[in-house]
Design a binder for these strands. Structure first.
Lengths: 231, 231
DNA sequence: AATTTTTATTACCAGTTGGTAACTTATACG
DNA sequence: CGTATAAGTTACCAACTGGTAATAAAAATT
């Protein structure tokens, strides 16, 4: 794990690279610890001293990597948003009907929500950020909402989705997905993938113009219930 | 921008007016102001001084009615929970299939979510409360979840709802509903009643064993508007 | 080995805010 | 009217916590 420069290293660049990498690694470690603690205790209750303690350093050391507590919060959010931007770009680049794109969106979004950085997209309060960053967050949220609505509208236009109120439908779907960030627990009864699959079906069942083709077997079977109690 | 309209003052403590209102009325006024401010600024950013200011009194005066800030928070939550308990009792007392009960539940829950006290059920963090109250909140949340699951299971049992994963279905529905507390704005384009109606349809469309009977006319039209609030 | 740069620590401060004590004023009541 | 009680106000504090020198230690560079 130690990326220290080997003494026999011929390149004068590698030391620099490794140094930079070490720094980035530490920065990331701070974020990982911070997002975890912020989620666990809540942003306001979680102190920087507590974050530092978990990293075996002291509070002022954190200021070598971040300028302020709210900057850390913002970076956590940004990492989650990055994931979202990625798959949205992917889906946008690919083809398919509006319904198909919507289902992809749901699947990907659900899986991101099941991660710490993903949860930070909905569990943190933008009002804790600077005005500037708060605006960025709001714009991103708006953009996600627009994506949902666009795909739904696309689906209505191409006939894959029944005519419906795009705004309310988008809210309904986004609500179910965002909620994942609140109840999902790693290692629980449900895997992120299973949730993603199920939600892609469930949340579009009512919207699909035609019944959704299942992977195998005839439509619904027995009551497949999962063991209760997570939360 | 829910404007603070200084044109009229809902506070019982009018600057130079008689101060002989009932104690309970004042207590309620504190809660109304507090829940509003807590939602507007977030619990931690909202100071008791700010709450008091809006009521034309000073911070220590608040302590005539409440013992602490977190007690105020808890009472706000409790008022919202009271509404929920009420309609859950009502629905439980009435009859109907599992699907019918579920739809009633969705309708009522959606409408409560569109109120300040309702939103406080999902916008406030139980970790800000004392351990004791925090437990009460968690128990209540669990109970709501159980209600959702029970109605779904009832529906499956009586044939009104297609076999499905009760846990995930409950989460999906609750998520959509809880999300209302985050985006709903009074005086916006959508009324609480319209949202409630639409959600009762949309969120059960995929679950219903048989197509839902609409109030009138053939299935979906473009941009259908649900009108006529029941209840 | 000496020097510069990076990284971490100790010590500390400032601003905020929930909460309290002492005191004052208004209302109810005998 | 005079007294008791409830309700408000002013003044204040204690504790917490984000953030900042000043400084030491470690690492890289020369």
């Amino acid at each position: 794990m130690d990326a220290r420069t080997p003494s026999f290293d011929p390149s004068p660049w590698l030391p620099f690279e490794s140094r930079r990498r070490a720094r980035d690694e530490k920065r990331e470690a701070v974020l990982r610890t911070a997002v975890h603690l912020f989620l666990e205790q809540g942003y306001h209750r979680a102190t920087l001293t507590a974050v530092a303690d978990r990293l075996n350093i002291t509070k002022p050391a954190l200021y070598n990597y971040f300028r302020s507590k709210d900057e850390i919060l913002f970076e956590c959010w940004a990492l989650g948003q990055e994931r979202v931007d990625e798959f949205i770009a992917e889906i946008g680049a690919g083809g398919g009907s509006g319904l198909a794109k919507l289902r992809k969106l749901i699947r990907s979004y659900a899986q991101v929500m099941a991660t710490d950085y993903g949860a930070s997209l909905v569990r943190f309060d933008p009002r804790d950020l600077t005005d500037k960053n708060s605006k960025i967050v709001r714009a991103a949220k708006k953009s996600i909402d627009t994506t949902f609505r666009t795909y739904i509208a696309d689906g209505i236009a191409d006939g894959s989705i029944k005519p419906c109120d795009t705004k309310l439908s988008a809210f309904a779907i986004a609500g179910s997905l965002n909620w994942i960030g609140h109840w999902f627990r790693r290692g629980g009864a449900l895997s992120a993938e299973a949730i993603a699959e199920e939600f892609a079906d469930r949340l579009t069942e009512g919207l699909a113009a035609k019944p959704i083709r299942r992977k195998a077997g005839p439509p619904p079977e027995k009551n497949k219930r999962s063991r209760g109690g997570s939360r």
